[in-house]
Design a protein around this nucleic acid. Structure first.
Lengths: 140, 140
DNA sequence: ACATACTTTAGAATAATTATAAACTAGTTA
DNA sequence: TAACTAGTTTATAATTATTCTAAAGTATGT
């Protein structure tokens, strides 16, 4: 009944240490999201479609939403927005920057951008983070 | 029947020069948006509610959406996104930056931020613009 | 194995936005 | 000025992304 390997173990620990029961669905989703070399950008619908396509037993929409929110709250995913009223998530949780190229998103490592001048936070506030979006267009 | 003054005239010309017929609704919305000292950030729903509150003859939801889109296409409004699946619009169309403070948005003039290092655009692409979001939190 | 709290699920509900197509109006032309 | 036509407005339906609900299922401690 139980298939267990060291990769799953990692995710089980990861989930458990965030107070999330390592259910089958959560482990499957975690494997899909985090077992990759490159960072991954996705919407919940995209995630659902690409995972369920190859599964006989589908995971429900609500579970994809629940799990993505849980992983975000646990700090394993970062949310960002484009101009299309959809939430995007990024498996790269380190503070970093983005190229936006007509709906395509490319990460820019934090150290690729440095500032010469930055404004102070308003009174009573402090800066949580600074993120840059570089919008691209075709060379003509 | 027709109330005309120099302020309306400005908007009528503005609309007409963008190929938009200066209908009553469009002129009213333009006045509301652009007759202000400070830049204005809003969602379409917020705009609709605040304008219709004081009107006996309401402007329809569809017209607010149509007009905001038209003004955006004509280059009089800029769209941006927060993390809540709603489109925000900004009457400040000059390239500039933002503080985001729990759903509140504050403009930062372009010259308040300068870069020491910026990455090159990927091959075949060029940089359209660079915008910074500084996320704020309370001081403790 | 039992109990219980946490999860998953299908489906309903909500929110923001877009589409539709009928009624209306601005600008043009006769 | 009357009539025409293309562009607009409007109420309403449709769509999309997301959240809610409550019943059925499952992980974990004892």
């Amino acid at each position: 009944m139980h298939k267990m390997n060291s990769k799953n173990k990692t995710f089980i620990d990861k989930l458990r240490s965030s107070g999330l029961r390592p259910t089958n669905q959560r482990v499957e989703i975690s494997k899909f999201l985090f077992n990759r070399k490159k960072t991954f950008h996705f919407t919940v619908e995209e995630l659902k479609n690409s995972m369920n396509l190859k599964r006989s037993k589908k995971i429900s929409t609500a579970t994809f939403y629940n799990t993505v929110h849980a992983l975000k709250s646990a700090g394993y995913l970062k949310e960002f927005s484009l101009e299309n009223n959809t939430s995007y998530y990024d498996t790269n949780i380190k503070s970093h920057h983005h190229f936006f190229d007509n709906g395509k998103v490319i990460d820019i490592k934090s150290d690729k951008i440095t500032f010469h001048k930055l404004p102070d936070a308003p009174k009573g506030k402090k800066i949580k983070n600074v993120e840059v979006v570089i919008r691209l267009e075709n060379n003509n």
